[in-house]
Design a protein around this nucleic acid. Sequence first.
RNA 1: GCCGCUGUGGUGGAAUUGGUAGACACGUUGGACUUAAAAUCCAAUGAGACUUAAACUCUCGUACCGGUUCGAGUCCGGUCAGCGGUACCA
Length: 1036
Amino acid sequence: MSDYKPSNIEPKWQKFWIENKTFKTDDSDFTKPKYYVLDMFPYPSGQGLHVGHPEGYTATDIIARYKRMNGFNVLHPIGWDAFGLPAEQYAVKTGTHPRITTERNIARFREQLQAIGFSYDWDREVDTTDPDYFKWTQWIFLQLYKQGLAYEAEMPVNWCPELGTVLANEEVIDGKSEVGGFPVERRPMRQWMLKITAYADRLLDDLEEVDWPESIKEMQRNWIGKSEGAEVEFRTSQETYPQPPPRRKGEAEGSSLQVDEKPGYVTVDMKSYVVLLEQSKEYRNNPTEAESVLWEELRGKKIGSKFRRQHPVLNFIPDFVCLTKRLIIEADGSVHDSKEAKKYDQERTEELKKYDFKVLRFSNDDIISNTAKVVSKIKSALNNREDYPRLNLDTPSFGGGQGEVKSEEVKSIRVFTTRPDTLFGATYMVLAPEHPLVDVLTTEEQKHAVEEYKKQAALKSDLDRTDLAKTKTGVFIGAYAVNPVTGKDIPIWIADYVMMNYGTGAIMAVPGHDERDWEFAKKFDLPIVEVVKGGDISKEAYTGDGEIVNSSNQDISIDGLSVSDAKAKITKWLEEQGLGEKSITYKLRDWLFSRQRYWGEPIPVIHVDDEHKAIPEQDLPLTLPEVDKYEPSGTGESPLARIESWLQTTDPETGKPARRETNTMPQWAGSCWYYLRYIDPDYTEGPVNPEKEKYWMPVDLYVGGAEHAVLHLLYARFWHKVLYDIGVVSTKEPFQRLVNQGMILGEMEYTAFKNAEGDYVNATERNDEEEYIAEKLSESGVEKKGNHFVIKGTETNVDARSFKMSKSRGNVINPDDVIEQYGADALRLYEMFMGPLEQVKPWSMQGVDGVYRFLGRVWRMMIDQETGNLNSDVKDIPADKNHLKVLHQTIKKVTEDIEGHRFNTAISAMMIFNNEAIKWESKPVSVLKTFTILLSPFAPHIAEELWAKLGETDSLAYQQWPELDEQYLKSDTKKYAIQVNGKVRGEIEVPSDKAADKDFVLTAAKAEEGVKKYLDDGNLVKEIFVPNRIVNLVVK
RNA sequence: GCCGCUGUGGUGGAAUUGGUAGACACGUUGGACUUAAAAUCCAAUGAGACUUAAACUCUCGUACCGGUUCGAGUCCGGUCAGCGGUACCA
């Protein structure tokens, strides 16, 4: 007996491929066209493969095999994203070194993948936990560090006491840890941050260049969240001068500034500020040549940090200032380098130092003749400086930001708005409860209420905020600001609907044209003014476009303009008045890059004299020491902090004692660049061999789950762009084409429900209050009635749906079981046959059975059941017209469908071929061979076996893909459907050479039996003839 | 709430630029083979009407309502449902 039995053939071919290195990529020949097809980096979990994995992997494998047969040099690698929490937690629990767990899991994954027959080049396997790999992860980190893109900051982080670690936002779900469900609290900690925000614009703009699903691009755009608008200054009202500051020392949050250490006084008052602004305007309008030259180099964040020109800082106007770095650049010999100005500058230098400002001076000559050198000096100065909190420091009239602030100095509040056109409609102002000016501005009478509210708001942020009711809350702080265009006093409130970490932490509230402001104004009875026509602001906020009204004063009017024209005009005016400026804000935050864990890449930094310093590149990799316990240290630091011998080191430059960084990198780090390492995994001179990189990049096709749509892809793009900037890679974007596979759900489940009394109730009539007993029904226990399934023979409808596979539901399908029962080829085929790759679809074991039977039929078409040799009707005879027609139809369909990733219909085309061919009395060997090649990317094992049985001795992995010959598709006749009034009433068959002959076809159509009677009954008023398609006769 | 995607037989799904809706497969039913079962093979299978029966024919039918068109699963407007993302983002 030689029936189709996968277990007889699959292991044999898997062994053959591995032993012969059949799929080893030969990348010595760069003249061949290349194709880089990549699967998303798997995490080798202890559970082994899930049927979701092979879905994408089979798709890429089909493409890889297909491309090889089309003469492409194919790079199709796999590896392991093996650092991460699960192995570490297992280590905490059992004391097993995570390396051991990881190795075991990798071995299992590798075995499972090989049992499905994927054509990976196994010589390129990479593993993020391998020191030869993470050496380069660390190297890339150092490049980021040198570019000033890595910095330390005290950040409020998600601290999970139970896990003893900080979690990323995405690892916190509903205020609990994603792993384990433990409570999470906010706690400020020293953290490494990566400045992805510096790349926000490029990450946004370059999305245009890649061929990705629109939905993914949109998600990335939303995540980056670019908003264009304006920052506007609101002076505080003179009449309602705030009371002396109730501020306590050391209260500043999210800041690395030690508040109590700063004496912090600021001498800017309103008068001098106005003078300053005027001066600065003047200077800006009369720049020296040197200033202009330098400004061209610094503007628009060209060197990574934002510089402002002639921007008042304290009561002093530097030529250029970077506020986040507190770095001031002076061009000596400029307009304001008069004697008085120079003296003025020197006087301020000391004071600036108190605020951690550093001043760099360059001569005008240097700037003009040695621009590059000057710029590089500025760059390195920037890199050596940490990020200072931006809060209000850029507004000198605030005073010293986080420093102790005297009330008299607080003169204005800066807001960010995307709707400067509605400025005339701003009737109140709202600060975030955490806003540093709140304490300063709050009046004595309101102090108690404000403190209460702040306390509540702080608590709230720890709770699950999303679920809280949308009703607005807030407190008036007693102070007023002046609307700069209406001149009216407007009250200042605090409310938790304003977030400290977006924009400036303060808003101008325009209740007429913002839904949140409208709700707030209604609740607290604040005035609502219409400034854009088009809605009814007594009923709801109007946020649409329209004519601007009620928006003029002596100096400016925007009445009558459209929203967008008004935005432009008012913004320009504000800039001229020094009251504001165009501003762009992003939702994207810098990337929190530290984890307090053992099982991750150590961050290659040492701390000397309270300064951080990169370790020399030649000392990489910095490996993990052995530890006795994997629990984090009690302080929240990683277990590395307990290993004194590792922790204490010396600075190789100065010989001073140094302490190693104890934070490790997050799991995203290793997966940010793995696609580069595959190109030359053993390269020792850098992360990637530049010559090979130029040949292989970008990735032509990247397939994976949509769960990585935002973070992984954004982070990887960010790193890639940094590597591009420093010349390591040659492409702006790493992944040219991206496809997201849809999730595979469990089998369809039918569930009936009983109420507490034990009576069946309709599934659709359940409500949230009552409890029900769920009862699982088999498919035969239900039937469809109308739109619902009901319990057979009743009217009681049931719930019919598929669920996400999960252990607890017990609907997980293990690929090993499928392979054991049906074989790897059937698994592959079914994964593809289920439906379109991108779509979510339920699993069905009967479906697997179906494709398995198809493979059996293919087998029996060629192989004699008794002898195991070819069937006697498989003959070496020339193929006739019909054979070739069926074959070439299949070639056409399968080829087009693979190119279009429509694997399900490609398979159905092969089924159609088989259904036809199996009926042929004698079957030409040549036709069957060609069909076997078509089948091979989908079901490679059976294809190799049949290929051998058909008399070939080579593997078919590199056979030429069959070429379509259109001439075989032509037929002698052409069928036409004949419609009368759009309904098909008959069908005619005409000779092919007459098919485009309108008169001939119409005459034949009118003579057709079924059509004739309609023509007799009415008048033919119109004839539609679409050549080779259809005839439609309109009869009245 | 907002953004995006998807709604086609009992089920998974097909259907080029608008041109014969339901390919292919599962399931079901009937039949062949078998002592029997499994496997395999053959046939039927959207719902309904007409007919002794068969053939034929007709009506309805792609979530719902409406529109454009000779013709709509496909295009447009509106509604509903499901899935994914996101959330006081100013």
